[in-house]
């Protein structure tokens, strides 16, 4: 049921993804602000299928050299490729950043016991500026294998980027910067090198007061 309705290939389901800022208010209280968030509830048969986006429309926003989006897509499998448009919530209202933690958490599910490698590339004008590679082992739980990347610290580049972005005076200026900022996440099977999920993230700032929002699309070649 996940396939075609969420970020899920035939081998791996993304259950949760969030980038957040956490601040300790007092010894017992933590404030957590979500910049972006995907929390997928279990799909039902009536849920709509994802819309498709032609990968050619976004190629230039991501690295195109060896191991780039085009080469990955050619290798397939085609059901593993997604585009996520985030409306990020930058209303953190945190002035004093001392004691703040910037992190990313994500969780995946599979019917198979694998070792997964998660590569996250931050791109500016389509060129990679930083990459983080993480390896995760499965935990068997309730008849399925879960992979959890828990509170991975955001790199210095991203912390600085967010800091500058949220201090821009107007949303249109933030969106102008975000037009050339993208993230490419590739989750693969460490032992076979098979692509399990490839997610291209693009961003705008949220105009509402209801937190981060997102749309998910299938990437296809028309």
């Amino acid at each position: 049921l996940w396939q075609g309705r969420g970020v899920a290939s035939s081998k791996l389901w993304m259950l949760e993804f969030s980038a957040f800022l956490e601040r300790q208010q007092d010894p017992d209280t933590y404030n957590k602000h979500l910049f972006v968030h995907i929390g997928q509830s279990s799909p039902s048969p009536g849920d709509p299928h994802l819309e498709a986006v032609d990968i050619c429309q976004i190629y230039d926003k991501f690295p195109d050299k060896q191991g780039g989006l085009g080469e990955l897509f050619q290798r397939g499998p085609p059901d593993a490729f997604f585009l996520v448009k985030f409306w990020a919530d930058l209303n953190t209202s945190v002035e004093d950043e001392a004691g703040c933690f910037y992190g990313v958490s994500s969780q995946y599910q599979s019917a198979e016991n694998m070792v997964i490698t998660c590569s996250t590339k931050v791109c500016s004008f389509g060129k990679q500026v930083v990459e983080k590679v993480e390896t995760e082992y499965a935990r068997y739980e309730g008849g399925r294998y879960l992979y959890r990347i828990h509170r991975s610290p955001l790199c210095e580049y991203m912390v600085n980027f967010l800091h500058k972005l949220k201090h821009l005076p107007e949303p249109y200026m933030m969106n102008s910067v975000l037009e050339n900022f993208t993230v490419l996440q590739v989750v693969s099977n460490r032992d076979t090198q098979e692509t399990l999920l490839c997610i291209a993230y693009v961003f705008e700032v949220s105009a509402g007061a209801h937190g981060a929002q997102h749309h998910v699309y299938r990437l296809v070649k028309e």
Partner: peptide, 24 residues
């Protein structure tokens, strides 16, 4: 073909790409 430096607004993307979803 690559769109090059064509602004995102001018690319062939679904209408929903520009509509911030309402919170559920």
């Amino acid at each position: 073909a690559k769109p090059g430096q064509v602004p995102m607004r001018k690319r062939q993307l679904p209408a929903s790409f520009w509509e911030e979803p309402r919170p559920t």
